[in-house]
């Protein structure tokens, strides 16, 4: 899932305090699961903002709406009237949801309440870790199901760098060395040969460097005749 966390409240106040009628829209998908922009967090954020406005003696109406998924038009559409009536919209969805709102309501100020961080998942209560960097050409088959693109600080593709120590990355004692994990996994599977084989430079064209990426599925497209 997409994992994010709420921006500091001061930053949110600074971007929203000029608007009399503010609509805060939460999202029922990933950000609900990671406790950043679900109903509870969105309501709590709205209450916090109301208090802050009162404190600043600013008269503002702050309303909350939820939708199933902010990253699909059909779930945004039912909110159209409310959005039109507001001066600005604060979205507690991920960066995708914010952009979908902004695209659907181009004349409206659409503001992000979250810092969207990565694609990953929870590993224990209250802890989320990154797993995938969306490189567009998955190599997990040769790395024991552990991604060195997202999880190695240097995106090494040919084994650990010289900084790997006691299972940790040279960057921080709090970060596991992805290549130590890969080594252990491949060893246990009897596949260490994969780390002896040379991996050539990665073709980054399917990755982040070519402008907005697009996937087209002709089989799913609706014919327009």
């Amino acid at each position: 899932m997409i994992v994010g966390s709420q921006k500091p409240i001061e930053e949110i106040i600074a971007t929203t305090c000029d608007y009399k009628r503010l609509l805060v829209i939460g999202c029922g998908a990933c950000v609900t699961v990671c406790f950043a922009g679900g109903e509870r967090e969105t309501e709590a954020l709205a209450s916090g903002l109301r208090l802050a406005m009162k404190h600043k003696k600013i008269k503002a109406e702050i309303e909350v709406e939820m939708n199933v998924r902010q990253c699909e038009w059909e779930f945004i559409e039912p909110l159209a009237d409310k959005v039109e009536a507001a001066d600005a919209v604060l979205s507690t969805a991920c960066g995708v949801g914010v952009q979908f709102l902004a695209e659907r309501f181009p004349e409206k100020r659409i503001l992000p309440a979250l810092n969207t961080s990565f694609m990953g998942g929870p590993t224990e209560q209250g802890v989320w870790l990154e797993n995938c960097g969306g490189c567009g050409n998955c190599i997990l088959a040769s790395t024991g199901g552990i991604c060195p693109i997202a999880r190695c600080a240097k995106t090494m593709l040919n084994g650990p760098c010289g900084g790997s120590q006691n299972g940790k990355c040279e960057v921080s004692k709090d970060i596991d060395c992805a290549w130590q994990l890969i080594y252990d996994r491949l060893k246990s599977q009897g596949l260490l040969q994969l780390m002896t084989d040379y991996t050539p430079p990665k073709d980054w064209t399917p990755a982040r460097d070519g402008g907005q990426r697009k996937i087209v599925r002709e089989d799913l497209k609706i014919p327009n005749d």
């Binding site: 240097k154 090494m156 040919n158 430079p201």
Partner: peptide
């Protein structure tokens, strides 16, 4: 880190 040391050698 477009390349790693191994790829730079090659």
């Amino acid at each position: 880190f477009d390349l790693d040391s191994m790829q730079l050698l090659d």
